[in-house]
Computed example of a mutant assay.
Amino acid sequence: MSYLKRLLTRRSPAKPVCADIPRRNVRFSLDEQTPRYWYRGWPHVTRFFDGLSIMFPLGEKLFIDSVVHFRKAIENDSALAEAVDAFVYQEASHIREHRSYNQQLAAQGAPIDALEQLLLRRQEVGNKFSPAMRLAMTASLEHFTAILSDQLLRNPAVLKGADGKMAMLWRWHAIEETEHKAVAYDVLGVVVSNPLRRYLMRCGVMLIMTGYFAIDVMYFIYRLAGNDGQLRNGREWLRLLGWLFVSPGPLTRVFPRWLAWFIPGFHPNRLDTHEALEAARQTLDEYAGRTP
């Protein structure tokens, strides 16, 4: 608990600062020259990232819809309204680039359509909940992606040995997830004004979303590995588990920040990401300056 308290005593603006949510137009132009197993030649770790990419276009469209639904509710808060617009721009850019990424996976024979149908069935269930509950789902998943993104940015070992273009795509995505990490949370604060109701809602939703997210990611890796003929490759399954939980261990390392979500008074901007974010932005600017 003392570690969590130290995390949450780091102060950042309680409201979104729109200057910190830039609108970039970075394109990665993936093609057949990208290695099939672009992460050190490791099939299952590569497919971990690939599975996330398959989730993003539909998932981030859902995020946009859930936030934009409440645009009128925040129209009197010009800073938050501008942050929402920047959030939508960044998420739309992610959809565009990950669709291109997924087209490359489809060209390898990956079952993109079947996996997206699973996501659509999940969303059909989610659509039965109230708009406020769907916004809470978005805020929860945005926290989850933000803490994973922070780990990717602050721990160089996470992308060590990866193909250069693919590593930069994931850094770019992580940068922007970090930049807009508080937007859905702040909109939820306007929409659900009762603090206790909001706290219980976001905590319950986080537990459910984490379970579904973990199950879906592992199922996607399973399906992609099966498509590669790698289901019985025990060494790669062990390598994946070691990579996820031991070294570099991104899922183990994000746990304290995931747990911070459940502390009353939590706000995403109170988790300090400034130093890692600024260093990553500089790297991205250099990359974008070299890219025609």
Rank of each mutant, 00 (worst) to 15 (best):
I221M: 11
I221R: 05
I221G: 05
I221E: 06
I221S: 08
Y222P: 03
Y222A: 08
Y222G: 04
Y222Q: 11
R223D: 02
R223H: 07
R223F: 02
R223A: 11
R223Y: 02
L224W: 02
L224G: 03
L224F: 08
L224C: 04
L224V: 07
L224A: 02
L224P: 05
L224K: 03
A225L: 04
A225D: 02
G226M: 04
N227V: 00
N227T: 01
D228K: 01
D228H: 01
D228F: 00
D228G: 00
D228T: 01
D228E: 14
G229K: 01
G229F: 02
G229M: 02
G229Q: 00
Q230S: 01
Q230Y: 01
Q230D: 03
Q230G: 03
Q230F: 01
L231A: 09
L231C: 06
L231K: 09
R232W: 08
R232H: 08
R232Y: 04
R232V: 02
R232L: 15
R232E: 04
N233Y: 03
N233S: 12
N233W: 01
G234L: 12
G234K: 15
G234P: 04
G234R: 15
R235C: 13
R235Y: 13
R235N: 15
R235S: 13
R235P: 07
R235I: 14
E236L: 03
E236D: 13
E236M: 03
E236W: 00
W237D: 05
W237T: 10
W237M: 11
W237I: 11
W237L: 15
L238S: 09
L238I: 08
L238C: 07
R239S: 14
R239M: 10
L240R: 12
L240H: 10
L240M: 13
L241Y: 14
L241K: 05
L241S: 14
L241A: 14
L241W: 13
G242Y: 08
G242D: 09
G242A: 08
G242H: 15
W243V: 07
W243C: 08
W243T: 05
L244S: 15
L244R: 09
L244T: 09
L244V: 15
L244M: 15
L244A: 15
L244K: 11
L244P: 10
F245D: 07
F245L: 15
F245E: 07
F245R: 09
F245N: 12
V246F: 14
V246E: 05
V246D: 09
V246N: 10
V246Y: 05
V246T: 11
S247M: 05
S247C: 05
S247P: 00
P248S: 13
P248G: 10
P248D: 06
P248C: 13
P248E: 06
P248M: 08
P248W: 04
G249C: 12
G249H: 09
G249E: 10
G249N: 11
G249Q: 14
G249S: 14
G249F: 06
P250T: 11
P250E: 06
P250I: 11
P250V: 12
P250A: 08
L251S: 03
L251A: 04
L251G: 01
L251F: 15
T252Y: 06
T252P: 04
T252N: 06
T252C: 07
